[in-house]
């Protein structure tokens, strides 16, 4: 692949014996995993299996009970926490736009609080285009956008500071299938072009199989399976992975069968 010849912006990532407990609940259970620079990881698993918790320990929105996270070989606690967060693009599961700022200001917030020069209007337009939103939306307030549109602004905001590492918690959950398809595809292209490292949480197994380099299946705080889409489709990665893959495969087979019936 010619992409691998490009200089990678994305760092490597290392989880070392990482755990997070809430009283008796073990949200993340002793996870040790490695991610190469430029890799695209899809994180899947049942609701409550600990995906968000794992993601938030990377940018320290949640502190681990034990273990550590390293980015590019450096412990995440090395630098000031706000410096760490500014270097990571984070898309929130619950969107988290600032309701009192218009879309342009929401997107430019990273440059406003950082030492970077304030984002020029041209770049805001470009970011909006990237997430398939018209330029006019720049001056709207968040509550004047649909849920799916807000979610896309969240993605644009995360990208605005040109981070190397992207953590995306169900970034396209609220989108219609066509827009989702388009955005996922164009995000994957962007990931490749910029050489980002991405962890994307998703409930859409088909999407995960289609765009990710590697899929982690999470179950009860553990990584139950860690495999490429091809390996996962071939089977042998446990019941959890099997039942997740079974859904899109079954749908595809039934669709083909219907076509044949016609």
């Amino acid at each position: 692949m010619p992409d691998t010849l490009l200089k990678k912006r994305g760092p490597s990532l290392e989880f070392i014996g990482l755990s997070r407990h809430y009283g008796n609940v073990v949200a993340v259970d002793n996870i040790s995993q490695h991610i190469e620079p430029g890799e695209f990881i899809a994180l899947v698993g049942a609701s409550g299996s600990g995906k968000s918790t794992l993601l938030k320990m990377v940018n320290r929105l949640i502190e681990p009970t034990s273990g550590q996270v390293e980015i590019g070989g450096e412990d995440v606690t090395t630098h000031e926490v706000h410096e760490l967060r500014r270097s990571i693009g984070y898309v929130f599961q619950n969107i988290g736009l600032f309701p009192h700022m218009d879309i342009a200001h929401n997107i430019a917030i990273g440059s406003r609080i950082g030492s970077r020069p304030v984002l020029p209007t041209g770049e805001i337009t470009e970011l909006l285009k990237l997430v398939d939103l018209p330029t006019e939306m720049a001056s709207r307030m968040p509550d004047q956008l649909s849920g799916g549109q807000q979610q896309r602004v969240g993605v644009a905001r995360a990208l605005s500071t040109k981070p190397g590492l992207m953590l995306m918690d169900e970034p396209f959950g609220a989108l219609d299938p066509i827009t989702r398809e388009n955005l996922a595809t164009s995000y994957r292209a962007l990931h490749d072009r910029l050489g980002l490292t991405t962890i994307m949480v998703t409930h859409d197994m088909a999407k995960a199989l289609l765009i990710a380099d590697r899929i982690w299946v999470m179950s009860a705080g553990k990584i139950a399976a860690d495999a490429s889409p091809a390996q996962l489709l071939a089977g042998g990665y446990g019941d959890e992975a099997e039942s997740l893959v079974a859904v899109p495969r079954g749908q595809a087979e039934r669709l083909l069968a219907r076509k044949a019936d016609g």
Binding site: N59, L61, H82, E83, L84, R85, R86, S87, Y90, F92, N94, I95, G96, L97, F98, P99, I109, G110, I113, G114, R157
Partner: peptide
């Protein structure tokens, strides 16, 4: 709380 978390997430300091 979600908005406060978003403020943390984008890397605001306490004062910001």
């Amino acid at each position: 709380a979600a908005i406060v978390e978003a403020a943390d997430g984008v890397g605001m300091t306490r004062a910001q």
